Simulated scan of single mutants.
Amino acid sequence: MNGVAYFQRMARYNAWANQHVLDACAGLGAGDLDAPRAAFFPSIMKTLNHILVADRLWLGRLIGAPERLALDTVLHAGLGEFRAAREAQDAKIIAFTERLDTDTLATDLSYQSMLAGAYTLPREVILAHMFNHQTHHRGQLHSMLIEAGVKPLAIDLVYYCLEVDA
């Protein structure tokens, strides 16, 4: 599998995993979604919003339309509104990877960090980071969901591949 096909798969997996997390969240009330939790972004809703903010920042940089958002911005306080925004963002990420080509993937991208200075990295590293960042915080969400009484989720990449993308 070449790099472009890999990132296309990761975009589809990412949307699939996000749907599973949101389905699990749908069984919780606002009190559980907003309850203080032991995580970097200290609630389920704050963590969901952080992932969305980061995706908007990274994709904006990749498409040449950078956004300026604080990493702890709560874009959507309610789960229904959040879900619509998450699904729209996942569709944008998938569309971006569908337009991606090997030559573009091999180029560097310069960007301004939200917390530090300016950096230049290969686009493939930035794209890999975007997906890895989501996985990192989905792991935190998974733990918070279990703490809230949700059954553990089977959202590893291998489960996606076995179910959808074999």
Rank of each mutant, 00 (worst) to 15 (best):
R12S: 05
L22D: 03
E163Q: 15
E163M: 10
I126F: 02
V53N: 00
K92W: 11
H50R: 04
A54K: 06
L100W: 01
D32I: 04
L28F: 05
T120Q: 09
F7T: 02
R9L: 15
G27H: 07
G80Q: 14
E67G: 13
I44A: 00
A77S: 12
L71T: 14
Y6Q: 11
V125P: 08
A106M: 08
A106P: 04
Q19R: 15
N14Y: 03
E124Q: 15
P122E: 10
L141K: 01
R99C: 14
L105W: 04
I51F: 07
Y119H: 14
T47H: 00
R123T: 02
L57S: 04
N18K: 10
S113Q: 09
H20T: 09
G117V: 03
Y119R: 15
P66M: 02
E147F: 07
T135R: 01
R86A: 07
Q134C: 12
W58P: 00
A17T: 00
L100G: 00
A128H: 07
F7D: 00
K151R: 15
N132V: 09
D103S: 14
P36Y: 05
E124H: 14
D90S: 09
Q140V: 12
A39L: 06
L69S: 02
Y6T: 10
R37E: 04
E98M: 13
D55G: 08
V53K: 00
A26H: 11
A95R: 09
R37W: 02
A26P: 07
R9W: 10
L153G: 05
I126Q: 01
E98F: 14
Y111G: 07
L69H: 02
D165H: 09
T107P: 07
A35Q: 06
A65I: 11
Y111M: 08
E81T: 15
V21A: 05
H76P: 12
V74Q: 05
A148I: 05
Q89P: 07
S113D: 10
M114F: 14
A15M: 13
N49Y: 01
A77I: 12
T97S: 05
P122G: 08
